[in-house]
Amino acid sequence: MNEDGESGSNSPANITPSFSNPGTPRSDAGLDMINTPPPVPAQLQRPVASVNQQQQQQQLLMQHQQQLQQLQSQSKYSQLLAVIEDMGRDIRPTYAGSRTSAERLKRGIVHARILVRECLTECERSARS
């Protein structure tokens, strides 16, 4: 009821949106288009992949650093064995023509030579005492 005691059509339950031409059928398709976000361009999706790649690279780097710390705490001989084991994984890909494996193998050989020298000096020290 309104102030005059009559039940009016202006109560909140009876209010309907008014259109300029109520007899014309209307669809809500226009409203859906307004509320639908535009499609994300492919250029904006690429950084997500690169962020994932960066995270993977960071994880690999952290694992490598942990392995180095473990190697430093080991004896020279066990370090040498670990390097030789890693080198063994690069032999087949090197024969297949992988340049990165060949480079890793070369670095492994250099590292192994250094460790062999250090092992020899360690053996000589222990033999003297």
Rank of each mutant, 00 (worst) to 15 (best):
M1N: 03
M1W: 04
N2R: 04
N2T: 06
E3L: 12
E3G: 07
D4A: 14
D4F: 10
E6R: 10
E6W: 08
S7C: 08
G8Q: 10
S9R: 09
N10L: 09
N10S: 08
S11V: 12
A13H: 14
N14W: 05
N14T: 14
I15D: 02
I15C: 04
T16L: 12
F19M: 06
S20R: 08
N21A: 11
G23W: 09
S27Y: 07
S27K: 05
D28V: 14
A29M: 14
G30S: 12
G30M: 06
L31N: 10
L31A: 12
D32A: 11
I34T: 11
I34P: 01
P37K: 11
P38D: 08
P39C: 01
V40G: 00
V40P: 00
A42Y: 01
A42H: 00
A42K: 05
A42D: 03
L44G: 00
L44K: 01
L44M: 09
Q45E: 04
Q45T: 04
R46Q: 12
R46W: 05
R46H: 05
R46C: 00
P47F: 01
Q53R: 11
Q53V: 02
Q55S: 06
Q55T: 06
Q56F: 05
Q58A: 12
L60E: 12
L61N: 11
L61V: 02
M62V: 13
Q63N: 03
H64E: 11
Q65N: 05
Q70Y: 03
L71D: 13
Q74C: 07
S75N: 09
S75F: 05
K76A: 11
Y77Q: 12
Q79E: 02
L80R: 07
L81P: 01
V83Y: 04
I84N: 12
E85C: 02
D86T: 10
M87Y: 04
G88R: 06
G88Q: 03
G88A: 03
D90T: 10
I91Q: 07
I91W: 01
I91H: 00
R92G: 05
R92T: 13
P93C: 09
Y95V: 10
G97H: 05
R99I: 10
T100N: 13
S101T: 06
S101L: 07
S101A: 15
A102C: 01
E103G: 00
E103S: 08
R104W: 01
K106A: 06
R107D: 11
V110E: 15
H111L: 13
A112G: 05
A112L: 01
R113Q: 14
L115N: 04
V116I: 15
R117W: 02
E118Q: 14
C119G: 00
C119D: 03
C119V: 13
L120V: 10
T121K: 08
E122H: 13
E122C: 06
C123S: 14
C123N: 13
C123A: 15
C123I: 15
E124I: 13
S126N: 15
S126D: 14
R128C: 08
R128W: 11
S129I: 14
S129K: 15
S129H: 15
